[in-house]
Design a protein around this nucleic acid. Structure first.
Lengths: 138, 138
DNA sequence: AGACAGTTTATAATGATTCTAAACTAGTGT
DNA sequence: ACACTAGTTTAGAATCATTATAAACTGTCT
């Protein structure tokens, strides 16, 4: 309750109306200590099980897409059958646990400096993303 | 014609019957100097326009999935609306040109050694993939 | 309060991929 | 050469995730 006003400000400041649905999703996504990795389907299930008024699936998609466009969420592509989103929008990398099929953040500083030696004429580098796939070692 | 036998051997050696369709797709994918990046849709269009007997879309999917499973192709995940495949199965990385929406190979040696400093107990690293997004610099 | 644009919603539409089951074919043995 | 069998291809149906639609609703501004 108390932090709704933070989310209302956040939404307003980016031109999104602070609707009930968006505030609820904000609280779910951003009102936590650790970063949150989720799929649309997972997010939708959580929302369904918190049986206050339900939010329609279309709105979940709309909201996640809006938040992504505004830079509040990052999409992480790992396997062709799942699309993950990440509430950590800072420059960082990922472990992907192939057994648990889950993402783990990897700090930028935990990855040594990456030096790309090939130059593409007329092109600038926008981002460098590292994905480390891990599995049980037995 | 002359190199069909290579592909026939390759297919047989991995337990795949060398059918007309698979040989044709092999030639298209692997009978070239440079590595080839493609989407299913793109591959299907090329096959359609080479107006010898057509290969059904289901077979294109089946074949690409079989080749992927056998390790002849690597799937590269970049944008949620496109799935790319790569005939270069050696350890390497990628540039993604956000303007042309196309992949460019980046040699393993063109990326400085990557040193992951975080260790996940009980997990071993299976792969490290680097994706460098680039765009026109004007 | 009234007006209006932005938002939500259920449902329909789309598009990519997989499934199905019948027809076909490569490989093997005779 | 012939026939058998398991693997493969095929068109079309089915499925799944996502987006579009358009009517109802709501936040904001005056």
């Amino acid at each position: 309750m108390s932090n709704n006003s933070i989310f209302i400000k956040k939404l307003r400041s980016s031109g999104l109306r602070p609707t009930k649905q968006r505030i609820k999703i904000c609280k779910l996504l951003f009102d936590r200590k650790n970063t949150f990795h989720f799929t649309i389907n997972y997010l939708n299930n959580i929302l369904k099980n918190k049986h206050s008024e339900k939010i329609s699936l279309a709105t979940v998609y709309n909201t996640v897409n809006a938040f992504k466009k505004k830079g509040y969420l990052k999409e992480i592509l790992i396997s062709s059958d799942k699309s993950y989103y990440d509430t950590n929008i800072s420059k960082h990398h990922h472990f992907y646990d192939e057994n648990k099929r889950e993402l783990i953040d990897l700090d930028d500083k935990d990855v040594g400096k990456i030096n790309i030696k090939k130059v593409l004429p007329g092109k600038k580098i926008n981002s460098i993303e590292v994905l480390v796939k891990v599995a049980n070692n037995n």
